[in-house]
Amino acid sequence: MQVQGKYDARFFLGEQMTRAQGLKLKRLSEEAYQPGQYARDLSFSEAARRIQVLEAEIELADSF
């Protein structure tokens, strides 16, 4: 749901993750060797949080 060009966070808190989030999360969890981070029944906000954490971990690992 959009409100004047901005997303209403309250709308997404209880919503299921999007297909794009699912695909990205699955790829990142495999790349980070943490397949347990992926689950089909995550909320939009939980998927976003896990994606952010995995991206940070991968970036950190690549910096060495």
Rank of each mutant, 00 (worst) to 15 (best):
S29I: 02
R49K: 10
V53P: 11
E15P: 03
L28A: 05
E30Q: 13
Q52G: 09
M17F: 02
T18W: 14
F64Q: 14
F64K: 14
E55T: 05
Q34E: 13
G22Q: 04
F12P: 01
Y33T: 13
M17D: 06
A9E: 06
Q52M: 11
A9F: 00
Y38K: 01
L60K: 13
Q2A: 07
Q21N: 10
D8A: 02
M1A: 03
T18G: 08
L54E: 02
E30C: 09
A56I: 10
K24Q: 15
E59V: 14
R40S: 10
Y7N: 12
V53W: 08
D62V: 02
R27V: 10
K26F: 05
R50P: 02
R27S: 11
S43R: 09
A32W: 04
K24F: 11
R19V: 15
F44R: 08
L60V: 07
P35L: 03
R10C: 04
S43H: 11
R27G: 05
L13I: 13
E31Q: 14
A47T: 01
K6C: 04
F64N: 11
L28E: 08
L54T: 09
L23E: 14
D8E: 03
E31P: 06
A48P: 03
Q21S: 11
D62S: 14
K6S: 01
E30T: 06
L25N: 06
E31S: 09
L54M: 13
F64E: 15
G14C: 04
R50D: 01
K26W: 04
R27E: 13
P35C: 03
F12G: 01
A56G: 14
L42T: 04
S63T: 08
M17A: 03
E46C: 09
L13F: 05
E46Q: 10
L25P: 03
L28C: 07
F64P: 04
E30N: 12
F12I: 02
Q4P: 14
S45C: 12
Y38E: 04
K26V: 01
K24R: 12
K6E: 00
Q37A: 11
G5I: 00
Q4N: 11
Q4D: 08
Y33F: 14
S29E: 01
Q21Y: 10
L60S: 14
G5L: 05
E57I: 13
S45W: 09
I51W: 07
A56C: 06
E59F: 06
F44V: 09
L42V: 04
G36K: 01
L25M: 09
R10W: 00
Q34C: 08
F44S: 12
A20K: 09
M17T: 00
G14T: 03
K24A: 15
A39N: 07
E55G: 10
L23H: 07
A9R: 00
S45A: 09
L25F: 09
E46R: 08
A61N: 11
